Simulated assay, not measured.
Amino acid sequence: MKALIVDDERLARNELKRLLENFPKINIVGEAANAEEAVELIDQLHPDLLFLDIQMPGKTGFDLLTDLEGYVPEVIFTTAYDEYAIKAFEFNALDYLLKPIELHRLSEAVQKVEEEFDRQKQLTETVKDNTTVLSENDQVFVKDGEKCWFVRLGNVRLFESMGNYVRLYFDDQKPLVLKSLNALEDRLDPKIFFRANRKHIINLKYIQKIEPWFSGGLQVTLRESGDKIEISRRQAIRFKELLSL
């Protein structure tokens, strides 16, 4: 699997590369000294995995992940500070390695990566067996705990990523389903459902108001609920092209 190392310290990058020589399945395709360089390399190389430092000059590792749109690699944080661990796992990190990195901890992290990629491969094969794009008129069965719904997709105004789950918003309901937002995006009709940012897919027919937002982005207000969703700067370009604004 392709890996990208993001760390502002050259010696730390070299030491991690040395340790990773013990794991032939990890192919280091590049390295970056800051978040800006990393974003460009992620767009170019589409790595499967980031070894990501948190404290860097300029933007932090968390800022980097927030800036990513659409494609987001798996992440193992590498840092000298333990106080960011809880926040790291809010970003769905596979592991959190404290510097100086010990070989046995790196081995545990790599094993988690391999297990996650095996799981994703199985999911991908399942999706390939059922690749029909779902339209707004299709109905889907949703189960959350003891509650069940048979929902017309056109009635879902918003999909929100919650770790390994997605929350669906329709009527006054908001159940969770065990599915990634990326996998769900692959199944939804792109003429109706739009990936607004890393965490949200919106139903275009529910947009009530569009406003300019920070850094060239947009903010949309959804009718009925009044939810305000930010469309990131990168996605705002696609959004304007899609709606010919």
Rank of each mutant, 00 (worst) to 15 (best):
L218S: 08
D138W: 05
S225N: 04
L204D: 06
K143P: 10
Q120C: 04
R198F: 01
Q120E: 08
R187V: 11
Y169D: 05
N155G: 13
D189I: 03
I207R: 01
A183Q: 12
D172Q: 08
T126V: 15
T126W: 13
I231S: 12
K143Y: 11
E146N: 12
G154F: 11
A196K: 01
D171K: 05
Q122Y: 04
Q111S: 08
R234A: 13
V127I: 14
E136D: 14
P175K: 00
I192D: 01
D129S: 15
D227P: 07
S215G: 10
K199T: 12
F214K: 13
D171T: 09
R157I: 05
F170I: 05
M162S: 08
E146P: 02
G217D: 07
R167W: 15
E136C: 14
C148R: 12
K143W: 11
N155Q: 10
I201A: 04
V177I: 14
E146H: 07
Q208M: 13
A236H: 01
F159S: 07
I231C: 06
E146T: 06
L158C: 10
G226D: 01
A183I: 12
I231D: 09
F117W: 06
I207G: 02
L222I: 14
G226C: 06
I210S: 09
L168T: 09
I207Q: 00
R223N: 08
